[in-house]
Simulated scan of single mutants.
Amino acid sequence: MEIRELQWFVALAESEHVTSAAERLNIAQPTLSRAIARLEKRVGVPLFDRQQNRLRLNKYGEVFRAHVVRAISEIDHAEQRIATLVDPDTGTIALGFLHSYGTWLVPGLLAGYRRIAPATTFELRGSAADAVVDGVRNGRLDLGITSPRPAGEDLRWTPLQDEPLCLLVPAGHRLASRRQVGTADLAAEDFLALQPEFGLRQVADRLCQEAGFTARIVMECTELSTLRTLVAAGLGVAVVPSTGDASAQQGRAVPVPLTDPGAFRTIGVIAPAGGPPAAVVARFYEYVRSTAGTTEA
């Protein structure tokens, strides 16, 4: 089978009309008809039901199309990977990261790298920590920027920087005027938090446990911006990154620094244990690692 003929088959399956498909493909109608006949002879069954001037995929054709679409996609992906091995400045990188990093860390990294390799393109996917880690493990993501460090030996982790955490309280809260506060002072508070799969939630839970209590969580959400808005509405307090932008709350939420030694989350980049296989990814990976304020663990 020729790749070209498989592509013609997909086009005909979409149009269900030989004449229109041939015009779209800029080939003669008999040429297309002969190609489909060769495919049907090869697989041993008709792929279309003929209905007057139209064709409709039958059950064999539906199965064949599903596999053909995947085959064409795999070949396209292979060509792209080979191209990136030849030229590390071109190609696409699938980069996963925590949602909150999309407001400050990721834009800075990409802006700096675009000055070095403007031909590189990115697929950006903000998600929870577990989803980012799973994406790199399963090959859906080339690299991930996340916190905390993932468990297991199948990923390579490079810490980049420590991000301080603070307590966000509603304006008028008893702690709003404090210059700083320890987590041990918060045992009686109603907490607002991200869901357990988020790295920030895991760090906040650890801080409370180290302070000798389990946080009383009254609401969970999936967005840091929502978490800040809930605090501003007076629904509870929350542990959030100090680097976050609370300006949208117009003074209705007040950040108070935390004094606990562990009141930070370490931001790191993750890659497969063997390193990125594609040159375009490897080059960006080394660029991100070069921005680290610490050495690889």
Rank of each mutant, 00 (worst) to 15 (best):
I217V: 15
T222D: 14
P241A: 13
G251I: 04
S247P: 10
A233R: 03
A248Y: 07
L227N: 01
E220F: 08
S225Y: 14
G212L: 12
A232C: 03
G236K: 00
P257K: 13
G251T: 07
G236C: 07
Q250H: 08
P255G: 14
R252D: 11
G244M: 08
R228I: 11
L224W: 06
A238L: 06
R252T: 03
V237C: 12
A248K: 15
Q250E: 05
E220H: 08
T243E: 14
V256Y: 04
Q249S: 07
M219Y: 12
Q249Y: 04
Q249K: 08
G236L: 02
V254P: 01
L235V: 15
A248E: 11
S242K: 09
D245M: 15
G251Q: 04
A211R: 05
Q250F: 09
V237Y: 04
P241N: 13
E210L: 10
V218L: 11
G251F: 04
P257F: 15
A248D: 11
T222Q: 14
G236D: 01
T214F: 05
V240W: 01
G244V: 12
Q250R: 05
P257Y: 07
A253L: 07
E220D: 07
V218C: 13
S242I: 10
V231Q: 01
V254Y: 02
A248Q: 11
V239C: 04
C221V: 12
